[in-house]
Simulated scan of single mutants.
Amino acid sequence: FQKVLGVIIGKTDVRSFPDRKNVEINRFTFGFTIRDSPDFFINVTAWGTEAYINGLADSFSIGDCVTIESPLVSTKDPEKGDRFCPTTPSLYRLLVTETHSQVCLCADGDASDWLLPLLHLPVKDSRDFYSLGDVVANGQKLEGSVINILAALKQVGDVKQFVTSDGRRGQRLEVKLFDDSVSSFPLISWDREPIQLLQGLLPRETGRLESISDVYTVSQLKEKAKEHPQPFFGLTYSFISRLDLDSSVSKVIKTRCGRCRLLVTEDLQTCSNQLCPARDQPLSASTGFDLLVDFTDHTGTLQACSLRGPVAEQTLGCTTEEFTRLTDDQRTALKWRFLLERCKIHVKIVPCARTKSGIRALVLGCLLADPGEVKQHMAQLLQGP
């Protein structure tokens, strides 16, 4: 097994255990779950010295895209350690060791584009869950069981720090869930990464366009990305300072593999990406708007923001087929409808060390801004907290 590429969808804290051969020496370990397609994900366990494991655990987080080189493949043992790991569709798990393996952040921006959406896909069948009412009614029978819950987030508490009796530091976060059967139900998280993930969620919000209300300047988006390790959503009132609609059609409308999102030509029989989950299958490609746009306000410029697919069609007011029928003059006129105009832009910001700005931005919605609305929000931003 040479290489695995995927997005981290789960991760535990580092733990230590006495070595079986020498109880005076501790072995260190942590686990994570990696996903590379809607249907497949696998658990990974890392073992090694304290310095190696702590350094490896600090090098990536949930939501990062990573490449694992030379992992060892092992059959899962549901009676041992695997009973405490997330259920996966594979009969195997991967082992990462200091002497054999390497884990590094993915440097391929195109790979990240098709991997990151996998972070938000459920890992369980939508019918395979307990309601909160079921848990309340059958709590004693379920004690010690691992179950799935489908519920909404009602409230996020504060992180509590503590020290165990043997001197180890820990943390806990309690959130409140609700569904149509129970109005408030506590859920406690103990591991650092899930706690950070829960802290980034919005209670009673779904993540839709219309639910994004936090307004930022460009510089504030950049600063929050530096301080905030998880993806977040925001609204900015900025000018479109780059919109290359009058380039060749091939630079505006692109074809990508339907599985790995690599740029392809439609005459290919199979995807040329050796890491594509469907590389041995007939090519299934999708064609659509695929633009990189810049946004600018009085605080700076956010470069190379992805404007793609249906969002681009809604923004421009035309389909890809209609765009290809436009004359050069019509494309230039469409460009100047938006270029250097103040727009109301909903974005998803993903911290990314590989880009010059330190972030990657995905446009979730863009339309010409109402002047009165801009004046109101810009006044609030200039006044500060």
Rank of each mutant, 00 (worst) to 15 (best):
L263Y: 11
T29G: 07
F28Y: 15
F338V: 00
D108A: 09
A51H: 07
L91Y: 06
V135D: 04
L119M: 10
I25C: 04
G55L: 05
R342T: 14
A152K: 13
Q220T: 06
V215T: 10
E313H: 03
G167V: 10
A379P: 03
F295K: 01
N43T: 11
T320G: 01
R35V: 05
L197N: 06
F1Y: 08
S126Y: 03
I42H: 03
A137N: 14
E322Y: 00
G309M: 05
R93Y: 08
C352P: 00
N138A: 09
G317L: 04
S238N: 06
L142W: 02
K176W: 00
P385K: 02
V249Q: 01
L368V: 14
N273I: 03
P89G: 11
G300E: 07
R15V: 11
S272D: 11
G167A: 09
Y92G: 00
R15S: 12
V175R: 01
F40E: 12
L382G: 05
R127K: 15
P38I: 09
P203H: 03
W47N: 05
R172P: 00
K348Y: 04
T49C: 09
C305A: 15
I359M: 12
S272K: 14
K254Q: 15
P38K: 11
S74D: 03
D58A: 13
H298E: 14
L116M: 02
L362I: 13
S250Y: 02
K21G: 13
L115E: 02
K356E: 15
A369I: 07
S284H: 12
F295Q: 07
G234M: 06
E322Q: 14
F162W: 09
L72N: 12
S112I: 04
T287P: 09
G10K: 08
V66N: 02
R20D: 00
I62L: 02
C271W: 11
D82K: 06
Q171M: 11
H298N: 07
V374D: 08
L381I: 13
T332Y: 08
S126D: 13
S16V: 01
Q199P: 00
T49L: 07
E24F: 12
